[in-house]
Design a protein around this nucleic acid. Structure first.
Length: 277
DNA sequence: CACGACTCCTGCTGGC
DNA sequence: TGCCAGCAGGAGTCGT
């Protein structure tokens, strides 16, 4: 489920009900996610107040503090994770692995495929950037320094096709398999085009397309935030209408061509061969 | 270094 | 209807 927009919408939905709240307890039902959930969390977190919820790439960061304890809870939703507020006493389901007990409700992490992450970085909020998983992350695509010029320079040594490059979180964070295809469609660039053989002008189009695609998705999700984080909602699905993703064989929305599916680096890519070069 | 294959895990879909 | 292969929105690690 989660690429950058989904994680950002999740953050926005969590914020009003979690920021400033005290953590009363922690439940770890299945410690084995991509990494083991640190057992010390059950001792560290109770009594902490969540002062801020930040996002870096697809990681959610909960800045926590109490007497003698300061650190950030690092949460990644992997492929199939989601965070939900649920009422006290709601029985856990099969893949509910972790939860925070708050004053009035629970915040529960479900993740069937267990590619998610729950970790802890001790220290002030800034210290989390030094965590090994975060230290290697690339630029945020919704910040000012991400633009066509930056992207053009960053891709100058990448001889492979642009689509997997766009998904490389060491370069740019947050662009997953859906929004990579959608952004390339918007920019009119073929996913097969060698990254270092795309000119500056087209990289400016691509950078703008990435920003627009992600922003539109966040805006679309923003209107259903309550659904996204509450168990009585619509399962957290707010997907923007895809131009090409999973539309293999269907007509292109822009021309008379047919959307095609190909495989790149083990992932599906979708594009319109007539619109994208 | 850059790149692709492989890997973790469970669940769903489509073909036979 | 049942079974099995293949695939799924992520990303670290390893070999070339």
């Amino acid at each position: 489920m989660p690429e950058l927009p989904e994680v950002e919408v999740c953050r926005l939905g969590l914020r009003p009900e979690l920021e400033g709240q005290r953590i009363e307890g922690v439940t770890v039902r299945a410690a084995k996610l991509r990494y083991d959930i640190p057992p010390e969390l059950t001792a560290l977190l109770p009594g902490c107040v969540v002062h801020a919820i930040r996002r870096r790439g697809k990681y959610l960061l909960f800045d926590c503090r109490r007497d003698g304890v300061e650190g950030s809870l690092i949460v990644h939703l992997g492929m199939s994770g989601n965070l939900r507020f649920v009422p006290f006493g709601q029985p856990p389901e099969k893949h509910d692995h972790f939860e925070l007990v708050l004053g009035k409700q629970l915040l529960r992490l479900a993740d069937p495929r267990r590619f998610g992450v729950v970790l802890w970085q001790a220290g002030p909020p800034a210290a989390v950037e030094r965590h090994p998983l975060l230290a290697v992350l690339g630029i945020e695509p919704l910040t000012g320094t991400f633009d066509g010029d930056w992207l053009h320079a960053a891709c100058s040594r990448r001889a492979g096709p642009i689509k997997p490059v766009l998904m490389d979180s060491h370069l740019v964070v947050g662009i997953g398999n859906i929004y990579a295809s959608e952004s390339l469609f918007r920019a009119g660039i073929s996913p097969l085009r060698a990254a270092n053989r795309i000119g500056l002008a087209r990289y400016r189009l691509l950078a703008a397309a990435v920003r627009e695609t992600l922003s539109d998705a966040i805006a679309a999700g923003g209107s259903s935030i309550r659904d996204y984080v509450h168990s009585d909602g619509g399962a957290g699905c707010f997907q923007i209408q895809a131009a090409v993703y999973e539309r293999d064989g269907e007509p292109c929305r822009r021309c008379s061509g047919v959307v095609r599916q190909i495989r790149q680096s083990g992932r599906s890519s979708y594009y319109c061969p007539q619109c994208q070069h």
